[in-house]
Design a protein around this nucleic acid. Sequence first.
DNA 1: GCTAATTGCTAAATGGATTTAGCAGGCGGG
DNA 2: CCCGCCTGCTAAATCCATTTAGCAATTAGC
Lengths: 339, 339
Amino acid sequence: MAGLTKKRVTLADVARLAGLSSAAASMILTGRPDTRLSAEAHRRVHEAAAQLGYRPNLAAQALRTDKTRTIAFISDYVATTRYANGLIRGALAAAQEAGHVLLLLETGGEPDREVQAIEAALDRQVDGIIFAAMRAREIFVPTLPAATPVVMLNGTSTRFPLSVLPDELTGGHSSVDLLYAAGHRDGIALVGHNKIAEQGLFRSETVGRRIAGIHAAMREHGLDFAVEESCWEWEPHHGFELARKVLAQRPEITALLCLNDRLAFGAYQALAEAGRSVPGDIAIVGFDNDEIAGYLRPGLTTIALPHEEMGRASVRLLLSPDASGEHLISMPVVVRASI
Amino acid sequence: MAGLTKKRVTLADVARLAGLSSAAASMILTGRPDTRLSAEAHRRVHEAAAQLGYRPNLAAQALRTDKTRTIAFISDYVATTRYANGLIRGALAAAQEAGHVLLLLETGGEPDREVQAIEAALDRQVDGIIFAAMRAREIFVPTLPAATPVVMLNGTSTRFPLSVLPDELTGGHSSVDLLYAAGHRDGIALVGHNKIAEQGLFRSETVGRRIAGIHAAMREHGLDFAVEESCWEWEPHHGFELARKVLAQRPEITALLCLNDRLAFGAYQALAEAGRSVPGDIAIVGFDNDEIAGYLRPGLTTIALPHEEMGRASVRLLLSPDASGEHLISMPVVVRASI
DNA sequence: GCTAATTGCTAAATGGATTTAGCAGGCGGG
DNA sequence: CCCGCCTGCTAAATCCATTTAGCAATTAGC
């Protein structure tokens, strides 16, 4: 309106228009509490800022205060696992609510890229770092300025006690409860059990707890698995083969407890092939609440990984100064038609 | 080793250790070409920098140069669509290669959040902005400093001519070619066609071109669809119902051309129900190369959306000063067993 | 031998906000 | 009347790297 504004509006411009020093303008705009500036001065500065459309230069602010309202989200894999998505989305939402912004970095799990990512983050003076681990592994963290808050998301670290994890113990328990409540006792097969996975070396750190929760619940109900079929990976075709084997060897089975939804997906295919119906002949439960769980017919009942909630929690924890310890996010039971 | 280094190492520290002025150190470390500094000075500065582990303060650098090596990636939806994932991953990889970093922002397609996101990006003096559109719609962009480069990713804008899109015209063509080459002539059904979609109002802007490519190829081969079944949304259960209808009304059909893989997924379920085999009785092609395409049995042949490549391209274009126009990324044909 | 050009480097300004130290004027107390 | 205190505000330092203008010492040129 007024004329060509070529340059950025600076604090000095605001101060000039308000007829005050930039020191005064700064104090007023940052809302300092103990200031002795007059109400009139406050009015004039705010008015001037609004009129000029003033936006503080964050680089200058960062230089002075070491605060950037920026959080680094460093994950080992973004696209490889569909899980990262929910985590990022939750973190993004919580960051936005807190007036922060997310710097996204990927390391591929390689130590040198990890170092690079951390350096890139520190160079930009981020206010904190979230390490999101899709696979369990100790992250190699180069010396970090002690003041930088760090949250481990979906993983743990001896160096950083603050972490956010799904409550897999309870979740595992729920899956068994679900089958028990539906009347299943002796014909339950466990699909995907794996010693290595249980040690948490190759999978998400917490699947060990998932399995522990399942076994604890079985014990509590006085039950035992009719079969336990194990495999290394948890892709649909493994579920297909395992389920096929179970059906051939133990036709009396009435329920399949699959350690994730992709295994369950494969199991559906094997059941269709064998002409067995879900849930009429065989009940199925999965874990994760993967996208495909809703696509299956009938819909797959599953124990959801609360990714979005975990992402939110990680940001909130990062920004709350006195947080510490392990934060477990409960895993909702998503009831569909497969039991 | 040497002692407690409480504070950040600054350029002045490096200069002091090298016995030179910080002006000299700056020129040497930024690799200015026309400098008259001695080889000896170069050596000493580099050595000092290495010894102290000097890392320039990006905030100070940004303040002076207006460059941050940071790119804003503003998308309407991150998690809602699984597509965003590949785009982000590609962008992330290309950014890293170029020594840049990605600021991730989500708008939910709401104009006020769009404004907020853009302001947050500009406040941080990003070197450029990528607008990723999952749904076609004109993005409301508040006045942007003219110097800020902008790339539209998976969308177009009258205001920003630089864009990256999948080559849907050719992709649509390929899908028909595939069926034609397999000998299909008269028994082809099109599943998912939709006038609204064709106008690109609710879907990704480019599906109109996908459909145009399909029709062009049909014309070229002198073919006509035996049936065209349309629907609003493209979720598996729509595919299920449409395929069921087609099978009931036109049992002579030999091929299903599904406008995306989720429709194809539902079609598989309908075929299984009807006891028809793939590809023996009926061939199926999809689009997108969704994750599920590989999970299906038999694997779904599909025309892939090159998300990762698009993400990479968007960053590369953003960083190349003379780029302009529409950049079409070709859609690879992913051959599996469904034809 | 003396000016002019080149070489090698530095002092100081700059970018924009925050923050400390402190100035001037008014008021109360003794 | 004088000292001290409070009020309302400002000057200047600070964060750190970049960049311009320019100084001193050589070397070249005639």
